[in-house]
Design a protein around this nucleic acid. Structure first.
Lengths: 345, 345
DNA sequence: CTCTCATATTGCAACGTGGCATGCCACGTT
DNA sequence: AACGTGGCATGCCACGTTGCAATATGAGAG
């Protein structure tokens, strides 16, 4: 077990307080005292007790990451950036999965581990803006993803409408006209899918291409299996289609798998585009064209926002809406130049 | 902020101790007192203070997961199982990435966040067994993956030798004879790659197929890019090859991507097999044949081992070696029946 | 030689909880 | 009536740390 301040103080022949001063770098300590105490600290391998510090100072050094599931590649990559970045602030990242369960989301928002965290980074799934407001005042919180909770919390996201429109425009420019969308989630209020759908429709409208229900497919969640199932529905439905824009890479990989399994050529018969730029997509066959959000920037902004909010708890700044850059990553599954064959019936 | 015991006690007209007794379910409390106190607790939304409990009781309710990187799909899926399972023990999972850096691994083993965790679940990368022993006595630890630290710590793993042999035998049975291996890591001492290589060679030897250096490819790490690079080296080397067994799914996906990019048919010209059964492989094109470890069992065993070790800190049980089941997941990239064309030169 | 000031060190208290020992009361027994 | 018993409630303390205020020491100025 590590030694505590009292034991070090005894051995060094000074008071506990002085040892504490040395440890915390308080300037008013005589150089020789500091040196002697430091030697004893090293000798006894003193490690500050986190529990005591937390109790005394109210800071735990923990930040909770609340998300639907860590096994999802997008969240995994994001968590990686967050865990790395957290070190800058001397924070440790703690993972809380909600599994998309609203009651669990609510519970975690109210208090993760008995308020023992300095802040929360939350990626909401099922909770509506209204429910987010019903939160008892506890640890600071930043939201990942655009929310309609404008003015209540900081939220960090890319411009989903613009990104979806850009991707749709890219598909149109490459010669596609029958572009389906997979990934609408009408039963959810978190707004992300709705925004992507909005960008998709905007771009179609701008190009004078009609859009409608038969090319818009709902999904329950964003797993590959959902994308696969949606693709089956789409192809079974008999609608003419020469491109599919999926609102996540996982959906896209599922959809593309089914397309190929059913004998279609990608991108020859049908182009496939995704959203998120997860590592899998880069090495898929063909490689997946996708919207690439700057995940490092997303993580960095979330952390710096949270840090500011933690340091100014008495005088909280107004909630901010931070837009992080994104770009299109054009790869084989939906290349720029045609590559399109005839739309299939 | 949440109310504390003292405030609740005042409001309820009892002592702090009695409130504490109610909270902790101590039996010697009169039913009516209990009820009254409980009502006040609910009213004031009392939430126990984790820092104080930790300081008093020495339990933090935190378990650290120490791994190379959370963004890696295998670890992401594992972390998901661990985070779910941790709830059974009222633990919260905390993520520490080492990035494969030995000094960082050492540092984290010595003390995560100032000993503030109840235990550690560690997936070592670069540390040798010898270095693992040089650990100051602190929080209990279980290792993921087979280690040569026999007798020192619990370690939970699948039988890597048997699994690799089984996959190699499967490839042989499907008619392949020139089977390359991608994923050896001679510079690492953690032993996992070495064990898989051992199983691979055993199976080849058992089938009377010679093996040698020109079909065994080293990698620096286990990313898709490493698999891709190795595949380029293999194909550029000009060796005849009709199958590739990669020691991780990520390597396999990278390798398969390159094979297809370079115009080979998978599995026609070359079969590809992986290891880990990550979700990506299931939806790859073609779907990836792989060794599937029972990740839920792995996570469950790690947690239950750790829990036992935590509860018996004074009387620690001997270190155990737990083998978790695995099975072959045969899919399109290396099917059972031939599908093999001629080996390429 | 004393007063002041800056530097250096210290003791006390408190953060919220739970273990321990003890106090108190009512009731039943001798 | 005195005593024992068991149910219930409470006060004190310690866990390790740090903020605050107070004190000790030495140097320099008047």
């Amino acid at each position: 077990m590590g030694a505590n301040l009292r034991q070090v103080a005894e051995r060094a022949g000074v008071s506990v307080r002085t040892v504490s001063n040395v440890v915390s770098g308080f300037p008013l300590v005589a150089p020789e005292t500091r040196e002697r105490v430091q030697r004893v600290l090293d000798e006894m391998q003193y490690k500050p007790n986190a529990a005591a510090r937390h109790l005394r100072g109210g800071r735990s050094g923990l930040v909770a990451l609340v998300l639907p599931e860590i096994a999802s590649p997008y969240f995994g990559e994001l968590a990686g950036h967050l865990a790395d970045g957290a070190e800058t602030y001397e924070w440790t990242l703690l993972v809380q999965q909600t599994g998309g369960d609203p009651s669990r989301e609510r519970e975690l928002l109210d208090g993760v581990r008995g308020q023992a965290v300095d802040g929360l980074i939350v990626s909401p799934w099922a909770l509506s803006p209204a429910e987010l407001t019903r939160r008892p005042d506890s640890a600071p919180l930043v939201l990942l993803g655009e929310q309609d909770a404008e003015g209540l919390y900081d939220h960090i996201a890319i411009d989903n409408v613009a990104a979806a429109a850009a991707m749709t425009t890219h598909l149109i420019a490459s010669g596609r006209t029958r572009i389906a969308a997979i990934g609408l989630q009408p039963h959810l209020e978190n707004g992300t899918a709705a925004r992507r759908a909005q960008g998709y429709r905007q771009a179609l409208a701008a190009a004078g291409i009609p859009y409608g229900k038969e090319l818009e497919l709902d999904v329950e969640s964003l797993h590959r299996a959902d994308g696969a199932a949606a693709m089956h529905r789409l192809l079974d439905g008999g609608a003419r289609v020469d491109a599919v824009f999926c609102f996540s890479d996982q959906l896209a990989l599922g959809a593309m798998h089914v397309a190929i399994e059913r004998g279609l050529s990608v991108p020859g018969d049908i182009a496939v585009a995704g959203f998120d730029d997860i590592e899998d997509g880069r090495y898929a066959n063909p490689a997946l064209t996708t919207v690439s959000p700057d995940k490092a920037a997303l993580a960095g902004a979330a952390l710096s926002c949270l840090a500011e909010r933690v340091s100014r708890r008495d005088d909280p700044p107004p909630a901010r809406r931070i837009i992080v850059p994104h770009h299109l990553e054009v790869r084989g599954s939906a290349p720029s130049n045609g590559g399109a064959g005839q739309p299939i019936d």
